[in-house]
């Protein structure tokens, strides 16, 4: 393989991987803090894309604000859904079977949101031609500016999010809850508030990813499945609840997919990446960087 082609692969893989990082981070946060294996994560990606579409068509605001509107929309809808769906389940169930029940609840949520979108908006592809337009030349490779800026947005969001988790009081509370919910409650952290906030944040990250990619992938009701299983792929790859690891994992998945796409042709990238994940699950269920699986995940 010539060196230029390898470079192309690297760039495209990284840009792709950036989005997976964003998606997987939201997923792993929801997993780690609320213990909800979110099957509806792709639907927030879909919501983000629709928010961005309607914002850019009806509001006629600068592109960066379109993405901000989508982020806000995802955040608010995530919080509403947490309050409406998971809060009642948490009150009813006493922890037993929470993982499986909440998982099935997200399955129901996924069907509902998808078909609500289908019913209200229809199955047409709704996309925009470009956010910024034009293309950039990186080392001889022409790459569209939307992809580059999208990548930057993803990385900046990840950075801001990381700083939020480590530097602010609320962020620390979230991390405390993920480590030990009972202990966090004892020191006076309002668990319900943290759960709602976390779900909102996770949904927001997925929405940003969906909104940023709108010019490349148009919005339609069932668009969320692929990003969903890819972000699950990343999360399993690095180990559940490992927020930092998702950054590396996302890029690994992005590169692996691009490489298998070029090596084997379209359609086979799913087979390759899924086969890899199946082998990881067989031989090291705790993921690449994970410690031994313990606690609630054992159930």
């Amino acid at each position: 393989m010539p060196i230029e082609a390898l470079f192309d692969l690297l760039i495209i893989g990284l840009v792709r991987g950036g989005m997976y990082v964003l998606m997987a981070m939201g997923l792993t946060l929801i997993l780690g803090v609320i213990n909800v294996p979110n099957f509806a994560h792709g639907e927030f990606y879909m919501l983000g894309a629709y928010f961005a579409y309607f914002a850019s068509v009806f509001l006629r605001i600068p592109s960066i604000l379109v993405i901000a509107v989508a982020a806000l929309g995802g955040f608010i809808s995530g919080m509403i859904i947490e309050k409406a769906v998971f809060y009642p389940l948490r009150r009813r169930s006493e922890g037993k079977n929470w993982l499986l029940n909440s998982f099935l609840l997200t399955v129901g949520l996924s069907i509902t949101l998808q078909n609500l979108a289908l019913w209200l908006i229809g199955s047409d592809y709704r996309g925009i031609t470009s956010y910024w337009g034009g293309s950039l030349s990186i080392g001889g490779l022409m790459i569209s500016q939307d992809r580059v800026i999208g990548f930057i947005i993803a990385m900046v969001s990840v950075l801001i999010f990381w700083l939020f988790l480590t530097r602010t009081k609320t962020g620390n509370s979230i991390r405390a809850v993920s480590e030990n919910a009972r202990g966090a409650k004892l020191v006076g952290i309002d668990l319900n508030r943290i759960y709602t906030l976390t779900f909102g944040l996770g949904a927001m990250m997925a929405s940003i990813a969906g909104a940023t990619l709108l010019s490349i992938n148009p919005a339609y009701p069932t668009m969320g499945l692929r990003p969903l299983f890819r972000s699950w792929f990343v999360v399993i790859l690095v180990g559940l609840g490992n927020v930092g690891g998702t950054i590396i994992g996302g890029f690994i998945v992005g590169l692996l997919e691009t490489a298998s796409y070029y090596g084997l042709g379209s359609g086979w990238q799913d087979v390759v990446s899924l086969t890899v994940i199946i082998f990881i699950l067989i031989f090291k269920p705790s993921g690449l960087f994970g410690k031994a699986v313990k606690g609630i995940w054992e159930q």
């Binding site: 998982f103 799913d270 087979v271 199946i278 699950l281 995940w297």
Partner: peptide, 19 residues
């Protein structure tokens, strides 16, 4: 694998078969 892991595993096997 337990519970969720087994579910995710079965899901991935299914997706692989589909692809």
């Amino acid at each position: 694998l337990r519970g969720l892991f087994a579910a995710v595993m079965a899901w991935f096997v299914g997706l692989t078969l589909l692809a």
